[in-house]
Design a binder for these strands. Structure first.
Lengths: 244, 244
DNA sequence: AAGTGGTCTAGACCACTAT
DNA sequence: TAGTGGTCTAGACCACTTT
């Protein structure tokens, strides 16, 4: 049986990680509930035979996992649950189009920017943009409807690479082509309109998620504004809090 | 003018943090776009006059910010955007009841567990539970409807402290009372039913978020199962990706 | 003064990749 | 062999809190 209360120097798992796990399991087992105070770093050094830097690294892991908090001169304490520490990932979202996904291009055309498009892409009204509509299906079942407006600039190759980035190869499977600096995302709960519900093959006014994105290039200017829509039934976000 | 390309040893900001910021700004400025490779750690040590441990710490920050990736024996590279790296928190949610919030207890009663309650709280059907309904209002406008089922155990003080934890004092403002081990959260997009829309003073079938929670004690047994409901109009989640 | 968290170093050692 | 990321140490130093 594996010893889970000592650090195995022959393990492939580094000492700082092992110690973080040991401490986390002890917290989960309720070992420090009297005041919630962990042994001091010096004590942990002696107890587990590691240097102070290694102990600190372990504590830092628990720290940014939101499991403990530290007070200089006082000690390290088990944190109670705080909703502000909770984070969700977009794994469930990207899982929607991981395998057997097919992308159907519904429409590509040049459109002149209206007030909203101009605001989002930070361009003048009536400037030409590329408007794209896509339907993503998983095993021939439509799961995602995507619309976006792209900056139209024939001289700038960022458009083509961005089109990849938005589709599977770029944004979702990764790669080292560094053409986008960053972006902002918004998640909303909406009701499907008639058009959307037809495309996603369900009843109108069904609840749905909308994930809106604005991506920017290294010149800090927007290159893409768009949104994914998926049925509420096809997606939910899960996470956990604490030391379960 | 502040020098942003050297480490200030007299600053209150530690060297590892300063270096991480320097590198992040250089990445944001597009400095490493040829191949996206950062200087080696040894080069960074010399350039900025810090030890290898300090450089590593800086790189680690960028690493878990999802900004760079490292390959052993090859180098450190600027990562392209990946949707899987995106995370969002519940700040916007907890903001809903930060100030001027009032909690109206709509109902508290003992109910016998049905199949679903029994499954969620891991108790036998017909076991008694405490059922609570609350309406949270901000400036006399209802924003959140909360329902939950609590384990009923007169001998166990966890119930009272958990009731605090779920309300403002515990889960949302924090504290060091360590009575809950952890929990699981789910975010869904739903349609308001008649009752919910009446309470939240809006039209039925409006889109809404449901945040479901199951909290567990240190014995690993559920102590609470419930959900918050809020109108889609009152809430959206925002986050960013990359080095904006 | 003693104990706490927190930063930092100079160098050793290892694993991997290029050449 | 030389360069890369990655772990670890033993101890110095600092800021803060408690006694």
């Amino acid at each position: 049986m594996k010893n889970t209360s000592e650090i195995d120097r022959d393990s492939f798992e580094p000492a700082y990680s092992q110690l973080a796990n040991i401490l986390r399991h002890q917290i989960a087992a309720g070992k420090f509930r009297e005041g919630g105070r962990l042994p001091s770093e010096a004590q942990l050094c002696k107890r587990y035979g590691v240097s102070s830097m290694t102990v600190r690294r372990s504590i830092n892991i628990l720290l940014d996992q939101g499991i403990v908090s530290t007070i200089r001169g006082k000690g390290t304490f088990v944190k109670s649950l705080k909703i502000d520490d909770v984070t969700f990932g977009l794994k469930e979202f990207s899982d929607l189009f991981k395998e057997d996904v097919s992308v159907k291009l519904l429409e590509v055309r040049i459109v002149s920017a209206d007030a909203e498009i101009g605001k989002q892409l930070e361009i003048d009204v009536d400037t030409k943009t590329i408007y794209i509509r896509r339907l993503l299906s998983n095993n021939s079942t439509p799961v995602l409807y995507h619309q976006e407006y792209l900056i139209y600039d024939p001289c700038n190759p960022i458009v083509e690479s961005e089109m990849e980035a938005i589709s599977l190869k770029g944004l979702f499977t990764g790669g080292e082509g560094t053409t986008l600096k960053g972006g902002e995302l918004i998640i909303e709960a909406i009701k499907l309109n008639k058009n959307e519900s037809q495309l996603l093959e369900c009843m109108p006014s069904e609840p749905a998620f909308r994930l809106t994105h604005v991506f920017k290039g290294f010149d800090d200017k927007p290159v893409s504004w768009g949104w994914f829509i998926c049925r509420g039934k096809d997606l939910c976000f899960r996470t956990s809090i604490g030391v379960l």
